[in-house]
Amino acid sequence: MNIVALIVSPLIALITGLFFLGLSRKISARIHWRYGPPVYQPFIDVMRAFSQKSITHGNFFDFGIILSLTGTIVLVLFLPIGGLWALNTGGLIMFLYLMLLGPFGIALSGAAAANPNSSIGISRNFLLALAYEVPLLLILLAVMTDYNTISLVEIVEKQAATGMAISSWRLVIPGIAYFLILPAILGLRPFEITGAVQEIASGPIAEFGGKHMAFYTLQHALQTFVGIALFVDIFLGGGTLFGLLNSLAGTVWVDILEIFIFLLKMVLVLFIGLFVNAVYPRFRIEQAMQYLWKWPTLIAFVGLVIVAIIN
């Protein structure tokens, strides 16, 4: 399983992530009363970017973007996609830390480009990350404390036995909090602060062109995938469907079906997120921080207190 997962799961993540980017463009187009681009448009964009001759600001500029993409791919290996996972070491803490590599790599690369627009974008990105990490850490700690494990796989497996985590009353509060911060994790509209084109000319990626841009798009696709997949894994029971697949247990079909169910759940989450994001302008960074440190943090804190008291 592990060897298969090692190859398959990054591919699934990459393709689904790019597809999600296209889907989100299509859906927002429909909300704008437009026809919208084809769903596979991001694939064309990536291809085009690869065929362009980009510029580089030195080796560190390249290193940053490579680190970013590599880190995000490795991050995907830790995510159970249905019953598919490649690595399970270090648990959620490792996961949290690896989540950092993507933005960190972009930050290094953007800073090496010596463009203040990039630097401002990075500073906003880190502040936004700090803002949503506070509730996110509380949420993940609540989950880890509730299941008394730090392993993501164990969490998913325990959910498979009991149904979705979000259906248990203790974890429904952290679940709500996670859903509130999901747009911030994905960088969707009210929180589309990092690369605000009208303000700081697309921020960290202001100097990215050609293959750098292609790598960034891939990384962004993976990041989108991870943000939603983590929610599905922790709160929506991963690839399980209330034990409906038990009859098929033991066959290969279960694995494939689980992956499909997992992706379906992700599409559902994405849809809801997009409808929210279509009707909001973007926040100013301090407003975003104030918001994230108010309601989501409060809810997540209450959730953690409840879980901690019960344990």
Binding site: Q52, K53, S54, G58, I65
Partner: peptide, 10 residues
């Protein structure tokens, strides 16, 4: 990264 088009140093 290496096999795609080489970038110009600026």
């Amino acid at each position: 990264f290496r096999i795609s088009r080489p970038a110009t140093l600026t």
